[in-house]
């Protein structure tokens, strides 16, 4: 199946970015673990694996693995490795952790991974009308939690730290 490694290679940075946003506390290590498991699964599986099918398949696998992991005890923090800290500006920090998982999944698949609504529905195995209603809830909730947090604490960097235990997020500039 020539081209599979190419396609998967091209998809990997997108899977990493999505995973990074999806996992609790945006841990680089936990995110890459998920991506690695996804790649291994994709390489072993016999499904048609080119193009959009591969993308949907991989995102679905990653979402499933993340759900499974969220039910398991969380690995102790502090064993970070690989992946640079996110160099974003404080004003860009969104409280994604405050979103319930199913809302986070829909929002990140749409807005960050750039999937079409139909693909998001395929990834999550839900009807596309549910995609829309969850997306609306997710966006409103995130705006609200963001505003609430700004009101509570003017130091945006601090508020992330307070929310997620030992922080590996470094605010630069």
């Amino acid at each position: 199946m020539p081209g599979f490694a190419d396609d998967l290679g091209r998809l990997t940075p997108h899977l990493r970015r999505f995973a990074r946003a999806l996992v609790r506390g945006h841990s680089a290590c936990a995110a890459d673990d998920l991506v690695q498991e996804t790649i291994v699964l994709a390489s072993r599986s016999d499904l048609p694996k080119r193009g959009p099918t591969l993308a949907v398949w991989c995102f679905a696998a990653l979402v499933g693995l993340n759900r499974a992991r969220n039910r398991a005890p969380i690995a102790p923090a502090g064993v970070e490795g690989g992946g640079a800290p996110l160099p974003f500006m404080p004003k860009d920090i969104l409280r994604l952790d405050a979103l319930p998982l199913e809302f986070r999944e829909v929002l990140l698949l749409t807005a960050l991974a750039g999937l079409a609504y139909g693909q998001v529905a395929d990834v999550l195995d839900i009807d596309v009308s549910i995609v829309f209603s969850r997306l609306t809830r997710a966006r409103d909730l995130l705006v609200k939690s963001d505003h609430a947090a700004v009101g509570r604490d003017a130091r945006v960097g601090e508020r992330i730290r307070a929310g997620g235990g030992p922080s590996h997020l470094r605010v630069v500039k």
């Binding site: 990493r16 990074r20 992946g83 640079a84 996110l86 160099p87 860009d92 990140l108 807005a111």
Partner: peptide, 8 residues
Amino acid sequence: LRTMFASV
């Protein structure tokens, strides 16, 4: 959202 994770 995109700015936040662009570096990844």
